[in-house]
Amino acid sequence: MRDAAATARPLVVIGAPSSAGSYAPGQEKAPAALREAGLVELMRREGIQVDDRGDVPGFRWRADRAHPRAMHADVAARVARATADEAGSAFARQSPVLVLGGDCTVELGIVAAAVETGGSVGLVYIDLDTDLNTPASTTDGALDWMGVAHMLGIEGTVPALAEVGHRKPLLKPGQILYFGHDNVTPPERGIIDALGIAGIPLGAVRADPEQAARRVLDGWARRFTHLLIHLDADVLDYLDFPLAENTRRNRGLRFDELMAALRLLLLAPNWAALTVCEVNPDHGEEDGSTLRTFCAALAQALARSRRLRAPELPDPAFSTSLR
């Protein structure tokens, strides 16, 4: 192991233990469970300098009968703002960020913080869903599949959440690229087509995960100052790797396919933040091996990142990955 930690850029870790936007409790346990599974120590063993800032105040899901079509929007906004504050201080120090969610709505905080730093922001959204629903288009009230709609300020979204940042909308359609999506409702498809949101669907990613990631790096990602990556564990086939909140089976990416793509995406020199969300620690093997496998693979993927390498060390991986 190369002793590069003293000069490498520190990775700021922020926990967002909230399931406010979820369908049920579980995701609020993920930040603690990932740490207990050894994620921070594994990253340090890989030579990454880690600045673990602990958790922002969280929330365990419960029924919000007063707002059945947009449950706990105020709480989700509060968690997102707290995450934005922590991430903003890290971005000001030019440190990359790893967010341990929590449900998908925490991404609004990361986007808000990145936008405030100046420069252009691009978001690679790894998820089987496109999260473009609104309280008007779906009746279940779970905000975790409405997050992108709130980033774009789609009509019918909840002001408390859509206005997390200092500008609305937080992003324009050209700043989002879907990666691995497959579950798209008719209203979402209408929005995607009308706004021209880019994407590489599940079938294309499964056919060649590395080539799909190279397509992102070679073209779309290069136009931005700050590249954000949103990793929703729901993109995984639950039978192959039962870690996510959603238990969809025989549908989604295999774990090795996801990690093959993620390893390349993290090589982007403009990568600024990775958000991991929708992990339910109550799923997976009872002995904790599923979480430990996830943590080990994530630590190894992050260790390859150009942003986390000592400046004086060569980075042959990036130069060869785009050929």
Score class of each variant (00 low, 15 high):
residue 57 P to V: 11
residue 35 R to W: 00
residue 94 Q to N: 14
residue 147 G to Q: 13
residue 7 T to G: 00
residue 174 G to R: 15
residue 297 A to D: 08
residue 175 Q to A: 09
residue 124 V to C: 01
residue 162 A to E: 00
residue 194 A to C: 07
residue 104 C to D: 09
residue 166 H to M: 09
residue 232 D to Y: 14
residue 99 V to N: 10
residue 215 R to I: 07
residue 50 V to R: 04
residue 79 V to E: 05
residue 67 H to P: 05
residue 167 R to E: 12
residue 291 L to K: 11
residue 34 L to H: 04
residue 267 L to I: 05
residue 238 Y to I: 09
residue 171 L to G: 02
residue 106 V to M: 03
residue 46 E to P: 00
residue 275 T to M: 04
residue 169 P to L: 07
residue 304 R to I: 04
residue 61 W to F: 13
residue 158 V to F: 14
residue 186 P to I: 00
residue 186 P to W: 01
residue 254 R to Y: 08
residue 155 E to Y: 05
residue 257 E to Q: 15
residue 128 L to V: 14
residue 301 A to H: 11
residue 274 L to N: 02
residue 150 H to Q: 00
residue 15 G to P: 09
residue 144 D to Q: 13
residue 277 C to G: 01
residue 314 P to M: 07
residue 311 P to I: 00
residue 72 H to T: 05
residue 47 G to L: 06
residue 4 A to H: 14
residue 276 V to W: 12
residue 74 D to I: 10
residue 136 A to Q: 15
residue 285 E to N: 13
residue 169 P to Y: 09
residue 126 I to A: 04
residue 110 I to N: 06
residue 62 R to D: 03
residue 179 F to C: 02
residue 110 I to C: 05
residue 118 G to H: 03
residue 25 P to H: 06
residue 306 R to I: 13
residue 126 I to F: 02
residue 245 E to D: 14
residue 247 T to N: 15
residue 6 A to N: 10
residue 138 T to V: 13
residue 227 L to S: 00
residue 141 G to K: 08
residue 270 N to H: 13
residue 133 N to W: 05
residue 53 R to L: 02
residue 114 A to T: 03
residue 82 A to E: 12
residue 102 G to I: 06
residue 212 A to Q: 12
residue 227 L to T: 01
residue 204 A to P: 07
residue 102 G to E: 08
residue 67 H to R: 13
residue 278 E to H: 04
residue 16 A to D: 03
residue 286 E to C: 06
residue 40 V to W: 10
residue 301 A to G: 15
residue 266 L to Q: 05
residue 323 R to E: 13
